[in-house]
Computed example of a mutant assay.
Amino acid sequence: MNTPRPHPTKPGQPGARDPFGVHLRHWRTHRRLSQLDLAQEAEVSTRHLSYVETGRAAPSREMVLRLAERLDVPLRERNALLVAAGFAPMYRQRSLDDPAMASARRAVDLVLKGHEPFPALAVDRHWNLVAYNALVPLLMEGASAELVTPPVNVLRLSLRPDGLASRIANLAQWRAHLLERLQQQIAATGDRVLVELHDELAAYPVPHVGHDTPPAGGELSGVVVPFQLVTPNGVLSFISTTTIFGTPVDITLQELAVESFFPADAQTAAALPALVAQAKAQAGAAG
């Protein structure tokens, strides 16, 4: 069993009623910056920053946004900073089904559809499945009904023993990779839900995978971590990339990620077109 490295200290995010200085101190310490470091980054005096943090001075809206930018605070939490300082929130959060988000939804659907015959899916900030293309349901077959009933959490689906875990040929390698990605996301966002998800995933038993497929070597060794899934068509091996919106001003878009999988070997590339045709036929029959 691979033992993941401990994730960063569990963040105790301030509550909605906490003053601005508490929020500021949380993010400054979370980013491991001294008051002097942050003052230099934000081009303000250390004394003024100290007064703002202790509540002796009230920040302007411009100052709140400048500090949030220097601290790389996610848009969702920038709203919390603004409210704590007495200002209206700046960033909206709308469902992808909102008419105002139609262009973004089309862009996501184009990416997913255009990636066929390879699998691709979109997830929110907590790794809940938002959208996917034709091949994804076929790869999820065999998982328990609970795990594929919306909202579907793709990390839970991947690593729970009654999910895909028993079918992942390089489970220990893939598990360590997912937990490491989650640790990085926690460090960036300070999201308590992700901390709880990490602890849940790390506590899952690692089932014995009775397949002889070793961790990928050759050209992939030391470059990427493959996802190797055992299917009736043999072991399908993928490498993945993550796509995010470049300049989002909406919370939903900032937190949306598209995971695109590419065949890592010739056998997988050859098998995928037939699998997509099978998936579409199944979807047509069900509809």
Rank of each mutant, 00 (worst) to 15 (best):
L171I: 05
R61Q: 15
V225Y: 00
A279F: 12
R76L: 10
D212Y: 01
D265K: 12
A42Q: 04
V224C: 09
R47V: 02
H198A: 07
A143K: 12
Y51N: 11
V230R: 14
V206K: 01
P74R: 04
R181Y: 03
T189Q: 01
P74D: 07
A80G: 05
S103A: 14
I251P: 03
P119E: 04
E77G: 01
D265V: 13
F238E: 09
G142R: 01
P214I: 05
L157P: 06
A264I: 03
P273V: 06
Q254A: 14
L171A: 08
A169W: 10
M1Y: 09
Q267R: 15
Q185L: 09
S144P: 04
L38K: 05
E259V: 14
I168Y: 08
G284S: 15
L275D: 02
F227K: 14
W127R: 02
K10E: 14
L178H: 13
L129N: 08
L236C: 02
Q228G: 01
V111L: 13
L49E: 09
T9Q: 13
V230Q: 15
R181C: 09
P207S: 06
A85W: 03
Q278D: 12
A104E: 06
H198S: 05
L275S: 10
I239C: 12
F227V: 04
P99Q: 08
P273K: 13
R167L: 11
G114S: 07
G284F: 08
S260W: 03
E141K: 04
L164G: 08
V223N: 07
E53M: 02
V130M: 12
H26A: 12
V152R: 09
V44C: 15
H208L: 08
E69S: 13
V235R: 04
A188T: 06
G218K: 13
